[in-house]
Nucleic acid binder design. Sequence first.
DNA 1: TAATGATGCTAACTCGTTTTAGCAAAACGT
DNA 2: ACGTTTTGCTAAAACGAGTTAGCATCATTA
Lengths: 343, 343
Amino acid sequence: MNKRATAKDVADAAGVSRTTVSFVLNNIEGMRISEETRQKVLQAAEALNYHPDASARSMVKGKTFILGFVIRQEPDKAYADLLLPEVMRGISEVASEHGYHMIFKPVPPEDEKNSLTTLFLEHQVDGLIVSGPLSKDQEIVDLFNAHAPIILQGRIDYPNIPSVDINNRKAAEKAVNHLISLGHRQIAFISNASLQYSSCKDRLSGYRRALENAGIIYDDALVFYGDRTPDSGYQAMKNILGSSLKPSAIFIASDTVALGSLNTLYQQNIRVPEDIAIMGFDDIPLSKHLAPPLSTIHIPAYKLGWNAANLLINWLEQEETPQHDCILETELIVRESCGSRQK
Amino acid sequence: MNKRATAKDVADAAGVSRTTVSFVLNNIEGMRISEETRQKVLQAAEALNYHPDASARSMVKGKTFILGFVIRQEPDKAYADLLLPEVMRGISEVASEHGYHMIFKPVPPEDEKNSLTTLFLEHQVDGLIVSGPLSKDQEIVDLFNAHAPIILQGRIDYPNIPSVDINNRKAAEKAVNHLISLGHRQIAFISNASLQYSSCKDRLSGYRRALENAGIIYDDALVFYGDRTPDSGYQAMKNILGSSLKPSAIFIASDTVALGSLNTLYQQNIRVPEDIAIMGFDDIPLSKHLAPPLSTIHIPAYKLGWNAANLLINWLEQEETPQHDCILETELIVRESCGSRQK
DNA sequence: TAATGATGCTAACTCGTTTTAGCAAAACGT
DNA sequence: ACGTTTTGCTAAAACGAGTTAGCATCATTA
């Protein structure tokens, strides 16, 4: 690049001032520019292939036009989550529409560099969407209290931070109710991640409530933990099979984790759903293609991202904090892994 | 935020000039600052929670410290590709290490807004990694000729643009050779995407070469097309089964696409590998968890991203164009979907 | 004692925009 | 013919850093 053209170059080429160039190219209302000058400027800009410098514009506007999308997880786990791309797609679509870009970054909770805060304080981004926060996440609370535009994709034990989420507890309850309705009473649980995460805690609590409503005694021994990866599901299922427990059904609070669990079953020649019923959660795009197709809870991931981005951009442009949380509906998707479908 | 603190605020608080603040905080060599002043500045910066403004820094440095990662696909297809997260992980890890951020954006080839060029000319990014370019991609060629730092993740019919890739042809050949070695001679092909993409063309050509080397006549009728999504694999497999062809094996040039194809087979009660052998390509993280675990070609996706990012950052920091392409090795992964493993 | 050198700091310019305030010249009204 | 308004443009001040050149002050040397 033989140096990018600046507004000054355009001004010189068109024989006008930088100010005029700016007025013309930004279509400023109320500034009277003759049609003749306007054309001269437009042509010069075209000829020089002029594009205004983003940093310079940012500085004077006080806005970067960049959104930060942060996952509160270790990078390897963040990228393993198969629901994530859908959320990203929702965000980036809205961002593009409004002329924003998106910086994506996994920032684990124990991050000692405070990358979340830094991202905002260095003004790399205008606002943040934080996915999968911990229940207690002081960094997020501090940022919010410092008036950082921040939208949670998930829930946190602190009021008033605007969020976009599903009702994890209700959804999990729905899932387990389905299993119960099919006659299962010995139902194990594999979590999507550790209980530090609010989504985890809520799903577990939904599982528990469904059991109790059906008069089934909740048993800690039936609860196992995944970490968002298929490998963790593989291992958890091994643990279940290796134990003396003989659940007739398992509710796995993440399809991604369930993938690994299904593999364990496949390896041990245990048939799904004939020998054991498997209920997933998330409805990742490939769940319907698994063998057997996974019954699960559909999360509107794209819409989650879409809503989060819209709330955030609205906040940025209107300068007013969103007043309401946005809770999207989930849906029980019955496929074949629970055996409820007549074949 | 009651307004972010600026360098001037720190200077005032510490009772020194802005220049001194800058010298202290950036640890400029050769500038002699007394330990006393240094501490005063550091304390003031700490107290005010000072973070230098990214835009301002960008402007004066002439660098944004942002890398652009662009996928040459429609957003829905880009986000459906299950290998992508691994590549992203590689890029973002290297980027983080060097103090760069990453803007991710799918930019389809027919994009009428020239988003790729704009991203660079507006100086939103310092350089670009472009994944999955078309064979002919004039916009990329133009950018490169304008000296934009750009690394391809894939190949293009134009010399000298630095790239990180695998040898798609050789890898496909390896895959098909495996099927042939198992005795298959009627082998169908489902592509990963349309032939405009170089990776597609190369995989098809590898398939063809393997057949010809084995004395098997290549037949256009056995070639089907996917579009990177499981759904396309589902449909392509239906087409195959609906035809009069009776291939004993199918090479599917994308595990993501294969997922859908496996579903078709499951639905029609066709057993893999007993009734038909399936060979994948990509080795997406979940391939080993499928039922049956998919035999495939391993692509070092993380390393692909890692190398691309390193090449690019090196280019940016050393100001010299990389001289060599970087071709990474693939590996045949034999699992169960081709029936080669004794159970 | 005066010249020289090192030490410790700062004034002022730069980056490329947007935007405010205002200045000429032309058009208008009385 | 003189004031007023409108039209069309520009000078200059931001924005918040990094950086160059140079100025005092104090210590050292001749």
